[in-house]
């Protein structure tokens, strides 16, 4: 059974710290009574966790955690403020994050992991790239080739941002060339390329 849109919006409001008492009650009821709602809530949490920490959360039933947090946060009566809602969402998130990469690991011993232990590189205190779910629109169409600060402003990550810009320019044509045929309009990928080389990239 699909999750009702009203429930989805309430969950988004909780995630964004903008939930009303009605939203919290709705989320609580939904995660207690519907496995689909629980799964959807976990996906929201998982995506936000991944964005913030680079870690994949394990799959855990969090209905009790939600209920406990909602109850303790405002006793089920008072109108919660944005900080309270945010705290509920954050505490539930913390409750389900184990920080592992287990979901992505395999047992293939012949293929060593091409990354340092710990999975996705993040720097403590880093700013999440994007963590809004269905909140009121914040119109920010992306400007040409900006960078997103994925892991703080350390000098190392500034260098990686510069590398990302350089790779965008360097590999843009090859990406367009390889993927154009999959697009409903095959010239659009080339339109995205800042500068097209005068010859085919593949010998």
């Amino acid at each position: 059974m699909a999750v009702d849109d009203v429930i989805r919006e309430s969950m988004s409001a909780v995630m964004d710290g903008e939930a009303s008492e009605m939203d919290l009650a709705r989320v609580l009821k939904a995660v207690e009574s519907s496995s689909d709602a629980r799964a959807y809530w976990q996906r929201l949490q998982g995506a936000q966790t991944l964005l913030k920490t680079g870690a994949m959360p394990l799959s855990i039933d969090i209905s009790e955690g939600v209920r406990a947090n909602v109850s303790s946060a405002h006793g089920g009566r008072r109108q919660p403020g944005p900080l309270t809602s945010l705290a509920v969402a954050a505490s539930v998130t913390l409750a389900v994050v184990f920080g592992g990469q287990q979901l992505l690991q395999t047992n293939d011993a012949n293929l060593p992991i091409a990354q340092v232990p710990g999975g996705v590189m993040t720097v403590q205190g880093g700013t999440p790239v994007q963590a809004r779910y269905g909140a009121p629109p914040q119109m920010q169409a992306v400007a040409p080739t900006p960078t997103v600060n994925v892991a703080g402003r350390s000098s190392t990550n500034k260098v990686y941002e510069q590398l990302a810009r350089e790779r965008f320019e360097r590999y843009g044509f090859e990406h367009a060339h390889q993927t154009a045929a999959l697009q409903p309009n095959s010239l659009v990928p080339f339109a995205r390329v800042p500068t097209i080389r005068a010859h085919s990239p593949s010998p």
Binding site: V116, M121, T145, T147, A151, V159, Y160, A164, R165, R192
Partner: peptide
């Protein structure tokens, strides 16, 4: 390409994203 610590960076243009991750 350089002697760098582990890290990551992102560049965006429209819907296209370039994400880099370095392994020392």
């Amino acid at each position: 390409p350089r002697a760098l610590a582990a890290g990551e960076g992102v560049a965006l243009r429209g819907s296209t994203l370039a994400y880099t991750r370095g392994i020392p």
